[in-house]
Design a protein around this nucleic acid. Structure first.
Lengths: 204, 204
DNA sequence: CCTCTATTTAATAGGGCTATTAATACTAAT
DNA sequence: ATTAGTATTAATAGCCCTATTAAATAGAGG
């Protein structure tokens, strides 16, 4: 254990690793302490309850996830170029946080009470993302550059395509006999394919 | 309790319901027995272990899931029509088993040992689905009717688009304030949109 | 060196869960 | 009606988990 990091930080790091890997229910504070190299009571000393520790981790991760839809808009590029940028940025964030989609989906379903927390985070950001994007989209449709489609539908399609390779990662790795490096290469290809799929599907 | 159904069947039904809702880890045999209206020991009497009970449920569901890719091929229709049929059939099976994607993803990630079981089921069916489909796809590409794309990529795109609305169901219902009926209507729209997205993305 | 506070550990209460066992109710056949 | 076999329950052992408490230890400042 590097002692320059505080034990509190150490616990947070390992908690994150384990929660991401197995979700809330299957991770015990005992295991977190074991991995962090400290007594189990210490986990509770710093974070009081497992729930609070999870929230500390989850909030952070949620921000990462939601920020994956945000991208600096340069206004001197075309809508299509912007859109490609958004899809790629989104994918890249997921690529850097490959277990994140699982954690979110898992908590969404097994722990519906947590939706409230997610909702707050989502809603406070949704204006930023949705409204301006929606306006631009409609303008493009108006101009006849792309076929009619709601912003929600487009958003869901991008999300779906980008998320799923990471949700299916264990299965894909096993069935196609890929090591991590090979999987990552495949993911890079998927990114391009997702962009292609979305852009082509928008042709008028 | 309808006593015409055997208790064993009753247990299986409620086990399925609970496993689908919360996954393996969060479902206890105690809860299954409570829901089924019997003593907890009886669950073990019939299925020996929670693990075996889960397998009994999971195998069945896995077959449903995998069969969702199979569709009777009428040869007198065009490739595009066939493809639309496949996408829609796939979606419909998911629609009828809305919690199924979650269960599979959840087990895939939290219980990697179970991948072996999934793999066997998948592989024995993959020939049927993949090989003939792949051949037809390549023929269409050859003819210039659709752009070059691997069968795997196409397959993943369809799977991604179809699955995700059900994974995101709790969040969508909450954020958009939908009741079940409204969600189902939305899902129906999504089905059309998914077909549109895929078909348009294949234009050469 | 001593003291005060922050950190860490040991011990344990209390609860839920899985699985097992022994005892009891039920059913059908002789 | 007795018996044999199946279905069901009550009771409980044994685990692991969360959370709490009290005690031990370390480090900083006087």
């Amino acid at each position: 254990m590097k002692k320059d990091k505080s034990m509190e930080k150490e616990i947070l790091i390992h908690a994150e690793k384990l929660f991401l890997k197995k979700g809330f229910a299957l991770t015990s504070t005992t295991e977190i302490s074991r991995e962090s190299g400290c007594n189990q009571a210490l986990v509770h000393y710093y974070f009081r309850t497992k729930e609070k520790l999870f929230e500390a981790v989850f909030q952070n991760k949620l921000i990462v996830f939601i920020s994956s839809f945000l991208q600096i808009d340069q206004s001197n590029i075309s809508f299509e170029e912007k859109l490609v940028g958004k899809i790629e940025t989104h994918f890249d964030v997921l690529y850097q946080n490959q277990q994140l989609p699982f954690l979110i989906i898992n908590e969404l379903i097994t722990n519906p009470e947590r939706i409230a927390a997610i909702k707050i985070q989502v809603e406070s950001n949704v204006q930023l993302i949705y409204s301006s994007f929606s306006r631009e989209l409609e303008a493009e449709i108006e101009k006849g550059n792309i076929r009619p489609i709601s912003a929600l539908d487009l958003f869901l399609s991008i999300l779906s395509l980008n998320i799923n390779i990471f949700l299916l990662k264990p299965l894909l790795k096993d069935i196609l006999s890929l090591d991590d490096e090979q999987f990552n290469r495949m993911a890079e290809e998927r990114k391009k394919e997702n962009v292609r799929t979305i852009i082509m599907s928008l042709k008028p």
